[in-house]
């Protein structure tokens, strides 16, 4: 069996060019990501912003110039200056310090809610799409029911009923995002259920569970990752919105949504900085996640670009 049985001619059609070196899995993805970042500076910028946010979330409390909770009535309502870069609020707290410290809380809320829904929604969706039948019907019905509410309104209702805590904000944000993840995972699993390579895997003796985990899951992961990045922005907005109307995080804890709410009353008397800087921080974070999501989508599937 060592020799080639028949000297068949080499195929007439040209093969796609071989990669310079045999890149595998992760390394190839990383290399590609670098290529995309280089060819698309906006995505590069988004990666840089993301790094800055992570850094601020990690180091925020250590590097603040002032105690974010310490009030100083003598220095209340000061416009931005060299001493207070972002000015001070009505009780004289340093806004720059508060904005910086708030990064960690907002980031944690977003990451944990997205991680939660990624696992739950992704799992439910893949099972629904792959197994079909009753699994599909029940899971889809749950999603439909959640989708029957305007999402932010449902989040309000959940936090109001469960109680006013950060954990419940995370939970509510995860619940309202559940249908999105579930539907994407379901659709992706469903189109692959009868795909040639899945049928082939059945022929080679793979059990259904194994096909789900080893064949289908890796193919769905990239799309779910993109979704994760895109909904991070929404999760932050959702949490900040809830805080803005007085749900979830309580003052004086520094959190971007609350800080904007605190500054709202001063806008019409001209003290713009109290609301502006936390609002800007919020906006930049969401902007960063959206750009990142678009960039990731380009890395994974250039055709899907919109």
């Amino acid at each position: 069996m060592s020799e080639i049985p028949t000297a068949l001619p080499s195929l007439a059609e040209p093969a796609p060019p071989a990669p310079a070196r045999p890149a595998t899995g992760f390394a190839a993805g990383l290399g590609h990501a670098r290529h995309v970042a280089a060819s698309n500076p906006i995505t590069g910028l988004a990666f840089a912003m993301f790094a800055a946010i992570v850094l601020a979330a990690l180091l925020g409390p250590v590097i603040t110039p002032y105690d974010p909770l310490a009030s100083d009535t003598a220095a209340a309502l000061q416009a931005p200056s060299r001493a207070h870069w972002f000015g001070t609020d009505q009780v004289g707290r340093d806004i720059f310090s508060r904005v910086l410290v708030a990064t960690r809380l907002d980031f944690i809320i977003a990451v944990s809610s997205v991680a939660l829904v990624f696992v739950l929604g992704g799992f439910a969706g893949i099972c629904a799409g792959f197994y079909g039948g009753w699994t599909d019907r029940i899971v889809s019905r749950i999603s439909d029911t959640i989708m029957a509410f305007p999402l932010f309104v449902l989040a309000m209702g959940i936090v109001a009923a469960l109680g006013n805590t950060v954990t419940n904000i995370v939970l509510a944000t995860a619940i309202v995002n559940f249908p999105l993840y579930q539907r994407i995972a379901r659709a992706e699993a469903n189109v692959r259920r009868e795909a040639g390579f899945v049928q082939a895997a059945r022929l080679t003796g793979n059990s259904e569970m194994r096909i789900l985990l080893a064949q289908i899951l890796p193919n769905i992961m990239p799309i779910m990752m993109v979704q994760m990045s895109l909904t991070m922005g929404y999760a932050i907005l959702n949490a900040a919105g809830l805080s803005f109307i007085g749900l979830g995080v309580k003052p004086p804890t520094p959190e971007w949504g609350i800080m904007v709410a605190e500054g709202a009353g001063f806008i019409i008397s001209g003290e713009w900085w109290i609301a502006l800087f936390p609002g800007l921080a919020l906006m930049l974070a969401v902007f960063c996640f959206n750009l990142l999501g678009d960039g990731l989508r380009d890395v994974i599937d250039p055709q899907r670009r919109t």
């Binding site: 795909a195 040639g196 390579f197 049928q199 082939a200 895997a201 022929l203 064949q215 890796p218 193919n219």
Partner: peptide
């Protein structure tokens, strides 16, 4: 079995 569409029958990953 040998499938109709060689592309579809191989797991892209």
């Amino acid at each position: 079995m040998v499938f109709q569409d060689p592309t579809d029958s191989l797991n892209p990953r």
